[in-house]
Amino acid sequence: MADSDVFTIAREEISSRLWLGSSMYPSPDIMVSAFASAQPGFVTMSLRRQTAGDLANNDYHERVNQWLGASQSRLLPNTAGCQSAKEAIQLAILARELFKTSWIKLEVIGDEYSLQPNVFELVSAARELSAQGFYVLPYCTDDLVVCESLLHAGCPAVMPWGAPIGTGKGIINPYQLRTLRARLPDTTIIVDAGIGRPSQAMQAMEMGADGVLLNTAVAKAANPVTMAGAFAAAVDAGRAAFHAGFMTERDMASPSTPVAGLPFWHTAMREGQHHD
């Protein structure tokens, strides 16, 4: 991508449009190698109850910290698992203290089966956390009115799902993502969740998404490191294509090669022959 395509959120420069989760990798070494391959703009983590023994053996946290210190990636804590605005606000405040960052991926789950966000609680939590100085990046549905409400609540970006978390189904409602892009032309849109293949990430970027956030598709690949690189290339290509501007789709065929000057112009047709 061109150097001029600087990516900023809340006036902070973000080094990449591909963001990665830190969960489910086969080992800490493979996780860090995948990060090195993808060079993600953000790496997500979470927080849970831990014993003293748990803390002493927390290799993943140690390795993520080392990666953050040696790269341009930023840390994005999440509030995964919260089911109310109150829970999410409490966990976000704890995350800010633990991770020393005001960025928060705000998750408030409303349905355990689909992991669909509870958008009412989400907007409520976003409003409160924004007032407390957080940079709230909300995991939300692709509903236009919900996204508008989140922006009014103070979020510097919205993160609509492509498909339910962990499904790998891609952009299951491309119409809605196109609508969001068209109706919110100046809003930073990160497609979060449901991306399973690099082609799906590229599709999101071609449609004008500003970035994608994914985890399972890389961590659960047979070779996470190679897949991380494939996603990075796809995101870059999709972004470049969006900027380049697409041809207009048409129903009738149109030859790419000029027909003028062809020496046997329609000879076969004049002789009554047919082409298959």
């Binding site: 989760g21 830190s22 969960s23 983590m45 979470s46 993520v64 995964a80 969740a193 399972t216």
Partner: peptide, 27 residues
């Protein structure tokens, strides 16, 4: 949240609920 600097001056009372949280991987 109970900031670390307040731990020594905060008495544990009957019925308190305390959680100790550390980082885990997440998506």
């Amino acid at each position: 949240l109970l900031p670390a600097e307040q731990w020594p001056s905060t008495r544990v009372n009957n019925g308190d609920i305390i959680d100790v949280l550390g980082a885990i991987t997440g998506g």
